[in-house]
């Protein structure tokens, strides 16, 4: 008897309203009660809080890989945090932990102060590759998350069509992924990730597969698109300049096992033009990040 009464306090319903709203959405499909309670908790707790997360992967006949070692980080709503680190340092594992795809061995993740036991599906996640469904056109790829959430087709389409303007893909809504360039496909993938209005957005090296020119263009585009929102964004990259172009705060991760070795507040105005790379502050930041990365490589 006493056991059954305890369960509801630890189990969080999948569609808890407090995780479903953001400033992008002025007319949320869900009830207002959830929004209000979210607004109350918003100022007190960070959108994402990772505490002492450790994760290693067991391999047969080989020593286990320690991917992430005692990582703690907080991200507030409206903040853009970039994690920089060498390849294979466990950055993606950290994102997977935040997303709920992977549970840490020790430590925990909370969303707005609540334990994120069932956070999978409440955190928007954009992967390195676009993962668009080839049998769906751009519009129905973009609305996949809304469709899964049970939102009516007409509403989902309207919402996607509106946002597609800002994303620069409005002319391609009927096109199929195979006919699009890599940069366009990434835009669609981001639109799909942000449409369900999660408070947290994870970006796992979103421009990795793109050429340098498209990459620079999409970096500018991304800061344009996301500056108008108040979600918490965490991006992973191995590109120091990309981190400084986009981030409010940059965390440097060491090679495996991944630890956070430097936390840098980026005090640069927004929007950041391309020539900000010549700004002495930018150069200074860049040097700090590079030497933090170098330190780890030499030790």
């Amino acid at each position: 008897m006493s056991q059954t009464s305890e369960i509801p306090s630890t189990v969080h319903p999948r569609n808890d309203d407090s995780f479903s709203s953001s400033a992008l959405n002025t007319d949320p499909p869900r009830s207002d009660a959830g929004r209000n309670s979210a607004a109350l908790t918003r100022s007190e707790f960070p959108a994402v809080s990772v505490r002492d997360a450790t994760k290693s992967f067991v391999r047969p006949d080989l020593p286990p890989i320690e991917a992430v070692d005692a990582v703690s980080m907080d991200v507030d709503l409206g903040e853009f945090v970039v994690i920089v680190g060498p390849s294979g340092c466990g950055k993606s594992t950290l994102l997977n932990i935040i997303a709920g795809l992977v549970e840490p061995d020790t430590g925990n993740v909370s969303l707005q102060g609540k334990p994120g036991a069932q956070r999978i599906g409440r955190v928007a996640y954009m992967h390195q590759i676009d993962l668009l469904l080839p049998w769906r056109n751009v519009l129905s790829n973009a609305t996949l998350g809304l469709e899964i959430a049970g939102i009516a087709r007409a509403d989902a389409d309207a919402k996607a069509t509106e946002l597609a303007q800002r994303f620069g893909i409005a002319d391609f809504l009927n096109a199929y992924p195979a006919t699009l360039s890599g940069g366009m496909r990434q835009r669609v993938a981001l639109l799909r990730a942000v449409l369900p209005d999660r408070d947290v957005l994870l970006l796992d090296e979103p421009f990795k597969a793109l050429d340098a020119i498209t990459r620079a263009e999409l970096q500018r585009w991304l800061s344009d698109v996301l500056d108008r929102t108040t979600r918490a964004t965490v991006m992973v990259t191995h590109d120091v300049e990309e981190a400084l172009m986009l981030g409010d705060r940059v965390l440097v991760m060491s090679p495996r096992p991944g630890r956070i070795v430097l936390e840098l507040d980026v005090d640069l105005p927004r929007p950041r033009p391309r020539d900000i790379v010549r700004d002495s502050k930018f150069v200074d930041y860049k040097w700090q990040l590079l030497s933090a990365l170098d330190d780890d490589l030499t030790h």
């Binding site: 999948r14 709920g100 795809l101 999978i120 599906g121 996640y125 998350g145 899964i148 959430a149 799909r192």
Partner: peptide
């Protein structure tokens, strides 16, 4: 593709 499955999971798919 397992990445596709992960993508669906992050969208909250049953």
């Amino acid at each position: 593709d397992s990445d596709m499955v992960d993508m669906f999971r992050t969208l909250g798919a049953s």
